[in-house]
């Protein structure tokens, strides 16, 4: 979706607020917010693309102003509301008003949760399961349309020409997964773009390069 989260190439955000921080979490509540989202992902359940989609749906002013981990918490809360696990009155008061079916939404144990983080997710399908439409060295163009829902093709490469540098494998399609429509497996390609192609005469150096991994649905032959 065309919204504020798609920041690549935008002007006006000033200097990078570089901080030589050594912390993982700056504040206690950020720690809790991180742990809460990870603990609930398997129970609700939701995946990263669904969580990202909720963050992308925030009003632009909230997206820019709220702390990163507060945005995480809002997204997690929205996913819980969608699953009927909490309601607005409970969230306002902090007091439970109804019980949920724990057989359908079982809590995850410490051991299982840490194991799940150590194992990671499965996003791929066997190499032969789809036939790539593009090959290494092909000139492609990024499609000009933009899905209204979650998508993983940034605005700044839309309609731009690039070269396929690698077939990364057959991956689940984020647009589909985020909408609860299943994996829609398809090839994912490493695509190289010239800075001059993307930024025109504003490019700092015409030969600098940008690399993005893009799903087949985002691409067409040049």
């Amino acid at each position: 979706m065309d919204s504020i989260h798609d920041l690549g190439g935008m002007h006006g955000f000033g200097a990078v607020p570089i901080e030589n921080e050594g912390y993982t979490f700056k504040d206690t509540w950020q720690r809790r917010a991180f742990g809460l989202t990870q603990s609930l992902a398997g129970t609700v359940p939701f995946c990263a693309d669904m969580h990202r989609k909720k963050i992308e749906q925030l009003a632009a002013v909230d997206y820019l102003q709220l702390d990163y981990f507060e945005k995480w918490t809002i997204a997690t809360t929205e996913l819980m509301k969608d699953s009927g696990l909490v309601n607005d009155a409970e969230l306002a008061s902090g007091k439970k008003q109804f019980d949920v079916n724990q057989e359908r939404h079982p809590p995850v144990s410490s051991v299982d949760l840490v194991d799940a983080m150590k194992t990671g997710g499965t996003y791929t399908f066997p190499d032969g399961s789809r036939h790539p439409k593009f090959f290494v060295g092909d000139q492609i163009k990024v499609r000009s349309n933009c899905a209204e829902g979650h998508t993983r093709v940034p605005r700044y490469v839309r309609s731009k020409a690039g070269i396929i540098r690698n077939i990364e494998g057959i991956f689940q399609f984020a647009d589909s997964v985020a909408n609860g429509m299943g994996p829609d497996p398809q090839p994912c390609y490493l695509v190289e773009f010239n800075a001059a192609e993307v930024w025109g005469q504003d490019a700092e150096a015409a030969d600098d390069l940008l690399y993005l991994d893009l799903a087949e649905s985002y691409l067409e032959h040049a």
Binding site: W29, L36, S109, V114
Partner: peptide
């Protein structure tokens, strides 16, 4: 406050094991 409200609700409803939350952090 938002984070604490959600954490307390999730624990009260049995959706989160507090030990698991601490372990993953």
């Amino acid at each position: 406050l938002r984070v604490r409200a959600l954490e307390e609700l999730a624990i009260a409803k049995g959706l989160v094991d507090p030990a698991a939350l601490e372990s993953v952090i």
